[in-house]
Design a binder for these strands. Structure first.
Lengths: 197, 197
DNA sequence: CGTCTATTTGAATGTACTCAAAAGCGGTGG
DNA sequence: CCACCGCTTTTGAGTACATTCAAATAGACG
C-alpha cells in the first residue's frame, strides 16, 4: 500500500492508532521527481520536510566561487530537508536535488507543526530522528577534524556502501571536502598498493 | 533559587506544572567541578546528560597520535553529553573537561528515559534541543567544507565572542581543525593587515 | 554517432603541518 | 614578592597534503 514505507519508518519509534494513521497520511503530499530535478534551490525558502520513499536525493551547498559541498545523501527510508531553514524560515543554504528518479512524501511546515498539536506522540518520533541526525553529524565532524582525506573516504565507503554505488566520484569528493582530482589520486594509490601487496 | 537557571532554560520551550517541576528537579544531581577536572574520559561509558549552570566545559576527541579535536564548548545554559554514547551505550569517543570551576546538573540516562514516561512534554523539549543541536552541527559541517581556516576563525569569533575570551588559542585551533601554530600565523596576518589599512 | 560530463593524469602552486626553539604568561611555592 | 616551572603562543625553516589548471581519456545519454 501507498504509505507502507513511511508508516513502517514511523513504527520503528512510535505506535499510532488507525485514526492517527489516517490523520497523518492525510497531511502528506506525494511527489514524483525525475533525476536532476531540484526540489529546493539555495537562497529560496524551505517550507517542507521530505521522506524518500524510492530513489535518492542529494543536499549540497554552493559557495561564492561555485564550489559544491555535499551536506547529505538521502536514499529510501530517509527524511530530508534543509533543517535550519525549515525551522527558522531563513533562506536556504543548500540545494536539494534528485540524483535518481524518486518518489517522496512532502510534509509542509504547517502540517509539521499541526502534527505535534494533534498527535503529541510525534514529538517523540522527531525527537529520536533529530537525535540520530545530531549524532551522525557529530561523528562526521570528529572524522573531518581528525582523519585524512583517504581515511574519510574509507569510512564513507564502509558506512554507505549502497550510496557509494549510486553517486559519482565528484559527489563523493564534495561530501568528503576534497577535489575530484584528489579523490582520483587517492583511488589510484589504493589500486597500486593493492596490486603490490 | 537553586534550579532557577535550568528551569528557565526549560521554560523557553515547554511549561511545566509545579508537580512536574518537583518531579523533574528531584531527578537532578548537582555537581561542582573544579577547573581541569574530567567529567568523562574517552573510551568510558557516558551515562548522563549535563546542564551547565555556571562555568564552562569542553568536549574533545583524542586520536591515536594524541591530537585533540574540540567537538564543542558548553558555557552556562547549555546541555552537554556525548550523545552517541549516552544514547547507544557504546564507549565514548570524547573527553568532557571543566575549563573553569563549574556548577552543573546531572540527569542520568535512567532518569532521562523515565522523564519521557512520566512527563511526555519533555519529548517536545528534547526534540527542540536535538533539532537545534543538529542545525548547529550541520552549519558547522558546511563551514568546515567550504571555508578556509581563516574564514572559519572569523566566524567562530563572531558567533561565540564570550567563549573566545574563555578558552585558549590552542583550544580554538583544535575546534577549527588546525594547529595552534597555524592559528598563530593567521592572527599575525590579521594584525599586519590591520596595521596597513 | 556526437555531445556532455566524469574521471584521470601531470605539473606547478598553495595551504596547512611538523619540528624545534624562543618568548610570553600565569600560577605556585619559597 | 619574586623566582621558577609548566604551558601557551610565536617564529621560522622545511615538508606534506591537497588544490588549481590544462589536457587527455573514458563513459553516459540522447
Amino acid at each position: 500500500m501507498e504509505f507502507q514505507g513511511i508508516l513502517n519508518n514511523i513504527s520503528r519509534h512510535i505506535t499510532l492508532s488507525s485514526d492517527e494513521v489516517e490523520l497523518f497520511t492525510s497531511m502528506l503530499n506525494k511527489k514524483s521527481l525525475s533525476r536532476k530535478l531540484l526540489l529546493l534551490r539555495q537562497d529560496q525558502l524551505c517550507r517542507s520536510i521530505y521522506f524518500v520513499d524510492k530513489g535518492a536525493l542529494r543536499t549540497y551547498h554552493c559557495d561564492k566561487s561555485g564550489r559544491e559541498s555535499t551536506v547529505m545523501f538521502a536514499v529510501n527510508d530517509w527524511w530530508v530537508t534543509d533543517m535550519p531553514c525549515f525551522i527558522s524560515g531563513q533562506p536556504s543554504m543548500v540545494f536539494i536535488e534528485a540524483i535518481e528518479d524518486s518518489e517522496i512524501f512532502e510534509l509542509s511546515k504547517a502540517n509539521f507543526d499541526l502534527l505535534f498539536e494533534k498527535i503529541p506522540l510525534f514529538e517523540r518520533f522527531f525527537r529520536i530522528l533529530m537525535q540520530n541526525a545530531y549524532i551522525r553529524e557529530q561523528l562526521r565532524i570528529i572524522q573531518n577534524l581528525s582523519l585524512t582525506a583517504e581515511e574519510r573516504y574509507d569510512k564513507f565507503m564502509d558506512k554507505y556502501p549502497q550510496i557509494s554505488k549510486l553517486v559519482t566520484q565528484k559527489q563523493i569528493a564534495s561530501y568528503l571536502g576534497i577535489t575530484p582530482e584528489f579523490l582520483s589520486a587517492i583511488r589510484k594509490n589504493k589500486s597500486v598498493a593493492k596490486r603490490n601487496q
